[in-house]
Design a binder for these strands. Sequence first.
DNA 1: TAGATTGTTAATCGATTAACAATC
DNA 2: TAGATTGTTAATCGATTAACAATC
Lengths: 218, 218
Amino acid sequence: MRTARRKARTMPLPVLRRLPGYHHAVAGFRGQGREWVSSQTLGRALGLTSSTVRQDLSHLDLAGTAKRGYPVGELDAVLRDRLGSARTHRVVIVGAGMLGSALAEHGELATHGFRPVAILDRDPERVGQTVGGLTVKPIEGLGRVVKSTRAELGVVAVPSTSAQAVADLLVAAGVRGLLNLSYANLRVPPRTHVVNARFLAGLQELVLLGKGSGVRGP
Amino acid sequence: MRTARRKARTMPLPVLRRLPGYHHAVAGFRGQGREWVSSQTLGRALGLTSSTVRQDLSHLDLAGTAKRGYPVGELDAVLRDRLGSARTHRVVIVGAGMLGSALAEHGELATHGFRPVAILDRDPERVGQTVGGLTVKPIEGLGRVVKSTRAELGVVAVPSTSAQAVADLLVAAGVRGLLNLSYANLRVPPRTHVVNARFLAGLQELVLLGKGSGVRGP
DNA sequence: TAGATTGTTAATCGATTAACAATC
DNA sequence: TAGATTGTTAATCGATTAACAATC
């Protein structure tokens, strides 16, 4: 076993996407008081081969130990650092319907470093109401709100018909990343990122997978 | 240009995952009254190369035409057929918090063929309340409810700490696919499918992407 | 006709898996 | 010590992209 190289500089996108999964699993093992975890055990928890796990973890600033595996506490710390769980990430939510409100009031956000700092809506009926301790503001104020709250991230929680317009506003307001909860395909300029968490597309994917015939591969 | 082969039998997973995106884009073009759409235009809408689009669409039972592209109406019909938009897919929602309730009341579900047929919760306070026209039922009745409603799909809309337990119940009750909205990594038996739509993991992914340094590739 | 665009094959790229020496 | 497990290299697998003849 060669010495672990310090600080991997780059990380493939698939690996990056798995980090939240590792984090959840490791936090669980830590909660159980476990001190070491092997690549095989982690693989079982995430549905990956032990080989993939070792390749993935080689991108982190951490070394495992032969015969024991990876130190749970350290792994948890490294993952939390990468995922920014200890920092505060300000999130502005557009759409104060049930979905946006659910996000604003979701308890698990805070424990991972995310803080909803504003929620806005187009509907005058909703403006002024209180959601998760925040007063719903009119969408027209988005630019000012993003500036004054220094929000880094925006959540698109509006119907798919207005999603692109909202995305454009958020980009113009200067957020660096968008979480898209709508069914729309959002287009944003190169320096901005979009991550989709689309439950409707997810349900459709399940329908396609369920057909059995129709899917190839592993 | 050779004749299109009828009925592609299999479809790679990445292609399958892009079908909802194609569907949304094509529905948009159709709404504009457009009759033809090229692979290049579709690629722009989805953030793909025209080459990838042509490869993807070759898996569908449909032929394009040189110089014009793909017929929007036919493409829409083929996609709707694949995605099951015309059939009814019964969905049982576990968790009647704001997130589960948002799903139950979400208007876009019905237009794509998904029908919430039951919503359940562990909390006695919530049991009996009405959400989206459904009466919240106690979680203990899950097996009976799935049977009587003939639900095919289950939504896990509970805190991550109870997510695996809920997944186990849904699998035991016989649903064929799970939409996971929680942060947990769900483990299910081989014949069951899980699709994640995890907003918290999505926000974390945005943080990782935002670091700029740290990501490799395209 | 000339030019744009498909459908398909082949090349490239990159992720996953396998294999195994190092080593605890 | 013997055996389990890492870290890493190489092989494999599969997805994306490029290229181009067919053709509308």
